[in-house]
């Protein structure tokens, strides 16, 4: 990816420029998904539609970066700052914000999963079980992040220093902050889990932008086959491919 794209903060909604030429380099060793699965097996390389149209320059806006779940921008800003502390930008590459994690979390909480639609939610909620759904837990916890920051430092959570943010998050993690109907440790656990998911999910979910989460750890992603690699004595770095590669 270009330097210009790297420098684009994820929360900034400027359009990013993508080309199919760039993507075509990611299909080496990949296989196109087809109806006749058996016929693909054993073939080394299959040209993709992307390669067929290589050379076409295509301008896109990321219209998917808006909020489906959160209603207050101050909540979203606090969430973004908290995810960045959990997975910070460093010399290895982008942190949670540039990877799109806050938008990933917004989409997950707006989904049926965020409302615990597939879970058993019958009363009574005993033995420490919470009656809140995941969206409720996150909203409540994030607002408490801002409350605590305001009380201690008279500023919103995203405006205080990194060290101050870390100390507050550690307090939540150890269960020291009072929240109604759920422990702050449970909220923090959910926040951490969602952050890691957003860093490393398939990019179609809104996180792991440009597969940079995968690139940092040399994870190849959604390959159909590693039969060419499995017996190799040396470690093999493969350019990652995402699920969108299976459709296009």
């Amino acid at each position: 990816m270009s330097e210009q794209e790297k420098n684009n903060p994820i929360l900034d909604k400027r359009s990013s420029r993508r080309t199919f030429i760039k993507n075509s380099g990611l299909t080496v060793g990949g296989l196109v998904l087809g109806g006749a699965i058996g016929s693909l097996i054993g073939k080394e390389e299959v040209p993709t539609q992307q390669q067929a149209v290589s050379g076409v320059v295509h301008e896109t806006n990321d219209y998917s970066e808006a909020l489906q779940f959160f209603t207050r921008t101050e909540d979203f800003n606090a969430l973004a700052a908290a995810t960045e502390q959990i997975y910070p930008e460093d010399e290895h590459g982008p942190g949670a914000i540039k990877l799109g994690v806050p938008y990933y979390i917004d989409k997950q909480l707006a989904s049926p999963w965020g409302r615990n639609a597939d879970d058993y939610m019958e009363r009574p909620f005993n033995n420490g079980a919470t009656p809140l759904n995941r969206g409720d837990i996150m909203i409540q916890g994030i607002r408490k992040l801002n409350d605590v920051a305001n009380t201690k430092h008279q500023m919103a959570f995203n405006a205080i220093s990194e060290d101050e943010q870390i100390i507050i998050l550690q307090d939540f993690e150890s269960g020291n902050i009072e929240l109604p109907l759920v422990s702050s440790a449970e909220f923090f656990g959910l926040l951490r889990q969602l952050t890691i998911e957003g860093c490393y999910c398939d990019p179609m979910h809104g996180g792991n932008k440009n597969m940079e989460g995968w690139k940092m750890r040399e994870f190849p992603g959604a390959y159909m086959s590693f039969i060419d690699v499995v017996e190799s004595k040396e470690f093999v770095v493969k350019n990652p491919i995402s699920l969108s590669n299976h459709l296009h």
Binding site: Q85, I86, Y87, P88, D90, H92, G95, I166, L169, R192, T195, M216, R217, E218, F219, F235
Partner: peptide, 16 residues
């Protein structure tokens, strides 16, 4: 730690 700078560096290093 299970999150933060050290976590990121170590978990990337040991990923493979």
């Amino acid at each position: 730690s299970t999150w933060g700078k050290d976590f990121k560096r170590e978990s990337l290093f040991y990923a493979n």
